[in-house]
């Protein structure tokens, strides 16, 4: 099977899961309601459609940013969640909420700033080091620092109602997201994804190491700026809209490498599609779980992703990945 056929299959899968996501929920809306003006049609348009759009976009940028970070840092363990970028975005958003922002654009801007700052710090700390250890350590430190600061902010927050709201949001979910959230999240995600997309040739060249990449005419500063700004915008906006949903960026490129090859630039589009498919599927599943409420999407992804990450770490011992 050729690469374009595999991409087409993946695209078809995303489309099917998107439609499936519209059909999933506590209330059954018959397919005929689309045509004959049944009032339940509004469940689809106002509740499920924005949620599905958000799941599609978020999954795509998480998969894409995971593939870009892995390629850029030449490290198969990189992902915006693992390296603390998502936690830093959450810190930014929580800081804005505690400081009294009523949600909306301010929270988005703060989350984007947090994600970009974390990414810039990480790139500066680990760029010159080829070691996986330095990188994972720096990311872990960053993630726990951001987590601690977030907890601190929550503990000093004046309003207990706001605290409950923040905790709820931190767990990560697409529940009750509507068109206003989509309108706020999509533009920065789209710009971020476009920036990340442009790193593809540089990621390929970086497979040979940074000096060889420079000798091929790749500008290190420009690449770093694209990765920092792209991850900041895409992941920051994603976290602001949905809270922290981890592991998508880690898992998806790994699942797709056997199908699409290891060349980092060739993994970007498949990873975006794969991320969208994974998140659409997961968000549909959490809605189908029995009971009145839903499993939080962030919690569900962590329960799938954490064992997978462990499995990767075990497999990475003694392998040629370094």
């Amino acid at each position: 099977m050729t690469r374009s056929m595999r991409l087409a299959m993946l695209g078809l899968l995303v489309a099917l899961l998107f439609l499936g996501s519209l059909a999933c929920g506590k209330a059954w809306v018959p397919p005929g309601a689309w045509l004959d003006g049944d009032p339940r049609w509004w469940i689809i348009v106002d509740l499920r459609l924005p949620r599905a759009v958000l799941a599609l976009a978020l999954g795509a940028v998480l998969g894409l940013s995971g593939a870009v970070l892995q390629g850029y840092l030449r490290n198969p363990l990189a992902d915006p969640g693992v390296v603390g970028v998502s936690s830093a975005a959450a810190l930014g958003a929580v800081a804005a909420l505690v400081a009294g922002a009523a949600g909306g654009a301010t929270v988005f801007a703060a989350a984007i700033a947090g994600a970009a700052a974390a990414m810039a710090l990480l790139a500066a700390l680990t760029w010159r080091s080829d070691s996986t250890v330095t990188f994972v350590l720096a990311g872990t430190v960053l993630a726990s620092l951001a987590g601690a600061l977030t907890a601190f902010l929550i503990s000093v927050a004046p309003n207990p109602y706001a605290v409950a709201e923040i905790m709820d949001w931190l767990m990560g979910a697409l529940t009750d997201r509507g068109w206003p959230d989509v309108a706020l999240a999509l533009p920065p995600m789209a710009v971020g994804a476009a920036l990340l997309w442009r790193t593809a040739p540089a990621l390929d060249a970086l497979a040979l190491g940074e000096v060889a990449a420079a000798s091929l005419g790749i500008h290190a500063g420009r690449t770093r700026a694209l990765v920092v700004a792209g991850t900041g915008l895409a992941v920051g906006a994603g976290v602001a809209a949905t809270g922290v949903i981890g592991f998508v960026g880690l898992v998806v490129p790994h699942l797709l490498r056997p199908l699409f090859g290891h060349r980092p630039g060739a993994l970007l589009l498949p990873s975006a599609l794969g991320g969208a498919a994974l998140l659409l599927a997961a968000d549909s599943l959490v809605r189908l779980a029995p009971g009145a409420g839903e499993v939080r999407l962030g919690v569900a992804m962590a329960m799938i992703g954490a064992p997978f990450f462990l499995f990767l770490l075990l497999g990475a011992r003694g392998s040629a990945w370094r």
Partner: peptide
């Protein structure tokens, strides 16, 4: 470069094609 490193398990023709970048 001195270190004969390729960080990903890419195909040989993809590695050689990087020279055309």
């Amino acid at each position: 470069p001195q270190d004969a490193v390729v960080h990903w398990n890419m195909r040989v023709d993809d590695v050689v094609a990087l020279g055309r970048m």
